[in-house]
């Protein structure tokens, strides 16, 4: 759970640039779909159901 609250991404600036580059040239619908696929893939990496549930809560709360 603590990984939701502590910085954990190596080379944060490089990651962010790569994320934006992945979306470059995509339409709104394509970006939407790319994000959905990324959520599914990364959720699989997390695996822990309790962490995923807490992540949903946190993301909703921040919006």
């Amino acid at each position: 759970m603590e990984k939701l609250f502590t910085a954990n991404i190596d080379d944060a600036d490089g990651f962010y640039a790569e994320l934006l580059a992945a979306h470059e040239g995509l339409s709104e619908a394509e970006s939407y779909a790319l994000n959905a696929r990324l959520v599914l893939l990364l959720s699989n990496v997390v695996g822990d159901r309790a962490v995923l549930t807490r992540a949903f809560e946190l993301a909703k709360q921040a919006g």
Binding site: T6, A7, Y16, L58, A62
Partner: peptide
């Protein structure tokens, strides 16, 4: 994404490096 980082940063320190 920028706005989402700023939305989240008030709730978790994890987003600060971004």
């Amino acid at each position: 994404f920028r706005e989402s980082v700023l939305d989240l940063v008030e709730h978790t320190d994890a987003m600060r490096p971004l």
